[in-house]
Amino acid sequence: MNVQVDARSIGKAENFDGLLARNTRLNPGDPVRIRVRRFDADRPDQSGFESFVVPYDASMRVLDALNYIAEHFATDLAYRWLCGSKMCGTCAIRMNGREVLACWESVEPDMTIEPLRNLPVIRDLVVDRAPYEARVAKFEPWLERSTDYAGFPEPLSHKDMKNASKALDCISCMSCFSACPVVGLGNLTDFAGPAPLVQLAQTALDVRNDPAKVASALEHAGIFNCVSCYKCEEVCPAKIPIVTRIIEPLKAKTAELVPHAARHSMVFRAIVASRGRIDPSELVLRVQGAKVLLQVGRALRLLLRGKINPLKTLFGKNRGAADAASRILDQ
């Protein structure tokens, strides 16, 4: 007997992200309690959270609450905004641990407001976008043609521009850059981060671009350090499917133009094509080569628990799966 439960979304609290839908918990005049992280490089000793209570007004946005604070309590509160309508991308902040546009997010009864992560803070909620801009500039994100095109108008289909045009929806708000756990690890890897990659995709996924130019940008993007966690997609106010429509097509482009940078994925594919399934030992051995010797300790631990099996790696193969995979992938 089936129980009528949608287990995929147990705990889902919101159906719509529209202001009116989300503001139903508050009535005009209700107190909105806000903790704002303050920071001033000239007075670092006074950094920390400051609390305010703002009266709720119909359809109140986080930006309205910040404006209220700046007008009534803290005239020196630093925050950015320009258009107020989800176009300029300057007002992104973190509300209760999640990246949102202040101009597009309804207030919550209790809010902690912080600046974006992964960028230096200039003052209060204002971050320095220079590291992002420098990374984008290095990609030289413009179109170049190695050859003249044959005539005008040049044929260009919707299908050709499917992914590049998604990237053009970006408002450079940096929400994804702040949400990305790999960017959060600092200089551990050369991963450019979602926001610069979206900028790169605008031209790298444009079929008219010079492949050599695209290749040199992709070679230094560190794109295979993306962990595919979808945190960028979750916070993107422009609703760009960053993983599936930006990062994965860029990975495919890398495999095509700079195969050595895509080695791990290509080895993975080759193993599945010959075995039908992945043998983790073979994958690690082939991807890491001699470096695998550094992992002898773990290998022994796994061997002891029966988690890896050299005999299976050498001789084990599921014939049905292997045949099907080679038929599908080897063509």
Binding site: S228, I247, E248, K251, A252, A255, A262, H264, S265, M266, F268, R269, V272, G276, R277, I278, A321, A324, A325, I328, L329
Partner: peptide, 12 residues
């Protein structure tokens, strides 16, 4: 077979 994890999914 394998579903392709993130690897085949991206490059093929």
């Amino acid at each position: 077979t394998c579903t392709g994890a993130r690897e085949i999914r991206a490059i093929d």
